[in-house]
Design a protein around this nucleic acid. Structure first.
Length: 251
DNA sequence: CTCTCCTGATGAGTCAGCCT
DNA sequence: AGGCTGACTCATCAGGAGAG
């Protein structure tokens, strides 16, 4: 989109006119570029087509992963999350060192690169949850677990203003990127008070298919609540609920 | 140097049309 | 007049070639 630079200078495109700045000054010209048919057919654009193919694969892989944790994502995603996930998926695909150019994919890539991915940039798990947790993926039994030792909520959870209660949520998923299917299960604690009383030990066990040969993922997040006259309300429609990729077993 | 083209998915923004 | 809805467009993510 066109952005205003100063009073009259623009950067971007309006209709068929492109505005940009070069070392020679500000330029406005008609949209140019490459003919779509040439990109589709011209041998010179082979590299470009290969790149597009991998990019498309990254977009699709992100969609399946997102679909697999849709229930958790509903209240824990920001508007740019899809772009960031596509970006990360591209890195995963580019880490595929066995497939030919244009055919690189998530299975042969490094799905582990998604570890640490934050689904809500406005509230990251890394800056909200300071209690130690341990994620474990047991491929043989299909158990995707996360354990938290007892902790004092008010000390170990940085909660947004207005918070009175919270939940810890997690999900384990087994994603088949080729057939575009997944197996998912998720867990959540009861609504806990955000105060100085230590929690019990928390263990979530999310089961997927035993002896799976597909990539397995563990996501962990928090949901904040505000109690008003005995009723629980989601805090600010969930815009401050963190959710992150904690553990990945790519195979 | 800086732009567009393509690929997939999606939220955000725009706009016409319609109802109250 | 203002609000709602569906249809549509655009920017975002990466990267490589060609145009000006």
């Amino acid at each position: 989109m066109a952005q205003q630079k100063g009073i009259i200078k623009l950067r971007g495109t309006i209709g068929d006119i492109t505005f940009y700045k070069t070392k020679d000054g500000h330029i406005a010209r008609e949209k140019g570029g490459v003919d779509a048919k040439r990109i589709a057919n011209d041998p010179a654009f082979q590299r470009t087509r290969e790149n597009g193919s991998e990019f498309g694969r990254a977009g699709k892989a992100g969609k399946i992963l997102r679909a697999s944790i849709r229930t958790l994502l509903l209240n824990s995603a920001d508007s740019k999350m899809v772009s960031r996930l596509t970006q990360s998926m591209m890195k995963v695909i580019q880490a595929d060192s066995t497939s030919a150019r244009g055919l690189r994919n998530v299975i042969d890539g490094e799905a582990e690169l998604l570890i640490g991915f934050e689904f809500n940039i406005n509230a990251t798990l890394g800056s909200c949850l300071f209690a130690t947790y341990e994620g474990t993926i047991d491929r043989v039994t299909g158990a995707i677990t996360v354990d938290l030792a007892p902790f004092v909520p008010a000390n170990m959870i940085a909660a947004p203003a207005g918070t009175t209660h919270f939940k810890i949520i997690s999900a384990g998923t087994e994603v088949d990127f080729e057939s575009e299917t997944f197996v998912e299960s998720h867990s959540e604690t009861a609504i806990l008070s955000w105060d100085m009383v230590p929690t019990a030990t928390i263990t979530h066990t999310n089961m997927v298919t035993p002896n799976s040969t597909k990539p397995l993922f563990l996501v962990l997040g928090l949901e904040f609540y505000q109690e008003v006259n005995g009723k629980m309300y989601t805090l600010k429609n969930g815009s401050y609920n963190p959710l992150a990729m904690v553990t990945v077993s790519g195979l």
